[in-house]
């Protein structure tokens, strides 16, 4: 059980946690490790709430859970500082600005929808967003495809998605089972189960976000 004094200290933190992540929210553009650096600056350097060593734990946990790295990191820091309420307030703080921005964008767009030039601009944006998704796919592939099994899983998954009507849930369920089985068989055969690509001596930071999941 937490002491009453500790609880009160956590409660007093909540508005500050909210404010910190409200400020980080609009800068989470593009996600990835650029944003982890922003969080580190605010939480470690400016507010001195956490030690730099704890950031590794944050990246590890945030990268393992589903959802954006920004929201997950906020939940982790919020939990460390203020328990479950801290996690919730941090997530609300980091989400509110983007929610407001995307709604404003949408309202502005629907106001000018009939202008042919606005329609043309959105086509340009559509191409850019497509390119950003492709870039994310490439980054993910670069850090996850390194042997026959991982290439095979990716190729079969892509084939099934393009050619059949398969629900992605089945692939998300099958991938881990396959990974677990293949590693188990390799271990039984006395092989060292390699589950991650070798690092080519780049600094680790550059590999971080897509490295996990």
């Amino acid at each position: 059980m937490k002491l009453a004094a500790e609880r009160r200290a956590e409660l007093r933190m909540l508005p500050q946690i909210f404010a910190a992540f409200l400020k980080i929210g609009p800068s989470t553009f593009g996600g990835g490790y650029a944003m982890i650096a922003t969080i580190e600056k605010e939480i470690v350097e400016r507010r001195e709430w956490m030690h730099r060593d704890e950031m590794r734990d944050m990246v590890s946990v945030a990268g393992s859970a589903p959802g954006g790295v920004a929201v997950n990191s906020a939940a982790f820091v919020g939990y460390r500082l203020g328990g479950l309420a801290g996690a919730a307030i941090a997530v609300i703080g980091i989400t509110l600005p983007t929610l407001a921005i995307v709604l404003l964008l949408s309202l502005t767009f629907s106001f000018f929808r009939d202008q042919p030039k606005v329609e043309a601009a959105l086509k340009g944006v559509h191409a850019a967003v497509t390119a950003l998704i492709m870039l994310a796919a490439w980054k993910m592939a670069r850090t996850s495809l390194f042997d026959a099994v991982s290439f095979g899983i990716a190729a079969v998954s892509l084939g099934l998605l393009l050619l059949t009507d398969i629900h992605s849930l089945w692939l998300i369920a099958a991938g881990p089972i396959l990974g677990f089985t293949v590693s188990g068989i390799r271990r039984m055969r006395g092989m060292e189960p390699r589950t991650e690509p070798e690092h080519k001596s780049q600094n680790e930071q550059a590999m971080l976000p897509e490295y996990y999941i």
Binding site: A137, I153, L162, P176, G179, T195
Partner: peptide
Amino acid sequence: FVRLHDNGAVKAVFYGLRPVVAALILYAG
């Protein structure tokens, strides 16, 4: 589970999941 990524079983699970996610993102694009 803070030290999640030091666990062999978790590594094995992500070894299989990451390629699926790569394919899903490419397909999304």
